[in-house]
């Protein structure tokens, strides 16, 4: 009896932690975690130290975000800090907004998937918010990983599993929250049951170690 109830609960939990199948954003293409790891030049855990917005002659504004690098998951970088350029920002009373752009704020702690260290991109993170994870301490002091929409990350599926799901589910599901395909999230915000930062980074490193 207990076992069956547990099975039912598992099914329900699975339904609500369902990963997002592959799709396209109206402005940003949806990607998978494996693709992000393969294509990103630099993946790191860090903290935002400073923001500076500058306007060019055509009134385009970029916000330059300085991160302190705490842990490198992929790639190499010689300095302890890195500056990434995000399109948009505020200079004086004028703001240039960019659809769906979320610029990390000072003090933010996260794991960031940088697509290129050479090119100035509209958004430096791979797949925009898909390559943007937050790290926040839960009420026990353990660092846990959340999406940029502050949904607890509960797991990362293998691409093969994602592809199998995609082949059986052609439409974008209702619970799509704009995260990478294969990343499972908790339904409830600030759920303490998500992956710890160490668990999440281990998954990423394992994926890279498997040559994916």
């Amino acid at each position: 009896m207990y076992h069956k109830t547990l099975s039912l609960i598992s099914i329900l939990v699975y339904l609500f932690l369902i990963p997002i199948p592959y799709g396209h954003a109206a402005s940003v293409r949806q990607v998978t975690m494996d693709e992000m790891l393969q294509q990103c030049q630099f993946v790191f855990e860090g903290k935002v130290l400073a923001l500076e917005a500058k306007e060019n002659s055509q009134k385009r504004i970029h916000t330059y975000v300085t991160f302190k690098i705490q842990d490198i998951i992929k790639g190499e970088y010689s300095s302890e800090t890195i500056i990434l350029s995000f399109l948009g920002g505020t200079v004086g009373d004028v703001t240039m907004g960019v659809s769906d752009m979320k610029v990390p704020q000072v003090g933010e702690h996260g794991i960031y998937f940088v697509e290129s260290l050479e090119k100035s991109q509209v958004h430096p993170l791979y797949g925009w918010s898909q390559g943007h994870f937050l790290v926040q301490s839960d009420n026990t002091g353990i660092d846990r990983v959340m999406t940029s929409n502050k949904q607890a990350v509960t797991g990362v599926m293998k691409d093969m599993s994602v592809q199998q799901m995609n082949s059986s589910q052609k439409t974008v599901p209702l619970l799509n929250k704009g995260v990478a395909s294969g990343v499972t999230v908790a339904l409830k915000d600030n759920d303490n049951k998500g992956l710890t930062a160490e668990e999440f980074k281990k998954i990423l490193r394992d994926k890279m170690g498997m040559g994916q």
């Binding site: 399109l87 948009g88 925009w128």
Partner: peptide, 22 residues
């Protein structure tokens, strides 16, 4: 490019909006 900024691998289109913050 998006006015000189590289699109990156995943960006299809962008809407820029200028507004007076105040």
């Amino acid at each position: 490019t998006d006015c000189g900024d590289a699109w990156g691998s995943t960006t299809l289109a962008v809407c820029h909006t200028w507004y007076i913050a105040s």
